[in-house]
């Protein structure tokens, strides 16, 4: 079919018209023993999810896909793949969008175009003891449309200079890019991924506002630590290492 992506043979595509959530479907397949490389792609979702139960509005025309992986690693390393996915989506969008577009990664793995969110990533892991059993990497990329009234302003590829982008092509590009970034990570570890991420980090060195489950903090985004955690300088010598939060605003100088 012409609207199927061209995929490397390590991927096993499962294409659905509509699904509750591609992440839930991929996790279910993971529990059933589906092979690494299983790629669930849905035209639309009825219950798309962001972090901490937030909805991911999922009409037709945008990309919703979840990839099942089974790398032989410690569970504690799994969060590194969050950045692998971010860099892969970032590289994909750099290829598709005009060269003049300013594209960044917002901690840990949102993709931002001209200050607007265009893509989100959410991972779910399952462990056997301290070893990872499987990992689902879920990605959502706004292609034809973006939601209104989101806490962080949103955009889509069609609104950002790629008016002819199609879901199948974007998925194919992403799959290629993810394979390459994953190879770098496997061969060279997290350092080159972290370096690339930092090179295109949104508001690095600037003041940001982050919302954790317990509080909202404002400070300078100094760095990410060797594991990828956000280091926020609140001033007066008070630095926080944050492993989970939403970066809700930036105050670029």
């Amino acid at each position: 079919m012409e609207d199927n992506p061209k995929l490397d043979e390590l991927y096993h595509l499962l294409k659905l018209d509509v699904v509750g959530s591609t992440n839930e479907e991929a996790a279910r397949l993971g529990r059933e023993g589906a092979p690494a490389g299983t790629l669930v792609w849905a035209k639309s979702q009825t219950g798309g999810k962001g972090r901490r139960g937030r909805d991911w509005v999922s009409p037709g025309g945008n990309l919703y896909a979840s990839l099942l992986l089974r790398p032989n690693i410690l569970l504690a390393q799994a969060p590194e793949i969050s950045f692998v996915a971010a860099v892969a989506v970032f590289n994909t969008l750099c290829f598709i969008l005009p060269q003049t577009a300013r594209i960044h990664m917002k901690w840990p793995n949102d993709i931002i175009v001209e200050g607007h969110k265009i893509a989100g990533i959410l991972l779910e892991s399952s462990a056997q003891g301290e070893m990872l059993d499987w990992l689902v990497v879920g990605i959502g990329i706004n292609i034809a449309s973006s939601p209104d009234k989101t806490p962080f302003p949103a955009t889509s590829l069609h609104e950002s200079g790629a008016p002819h982008a199609k879901t199948a092509d974007v998925l194919g590009r992403f799959a290629d890019s993810f394979k390459r970034v994953m190879e770098t990570w496997t061969n060279e570890g997290f350092a080159p991924i972290r370096k690339r991420w930092l090179e295109f980090a949104w508001c690095l060195g600037e003041e940001i506002e982050v919302k954790t489950e317990q509080e909202t903090l404002r400070g300078v985004f100094c760095d990410i630590d060797p594991s990828g955690a956000l280091i926020l300088d609140l001033g007066g010598g008070d630095k926080r290492i944050i492993t989970a939060a939403n970066v809700i605003r930036g105050f670029p100088t």
Binding site: R51, L75, A78, P79, N109, E124, S125, S227, A244
Partner: peptide
């Protein structure tokens, strides 16, 4: 337990 948007039940 979440770390960097990786959710681990």
């Amino acid at each position: 337990v979440e770390a960097m948007k990786t959710m681990n039940p």
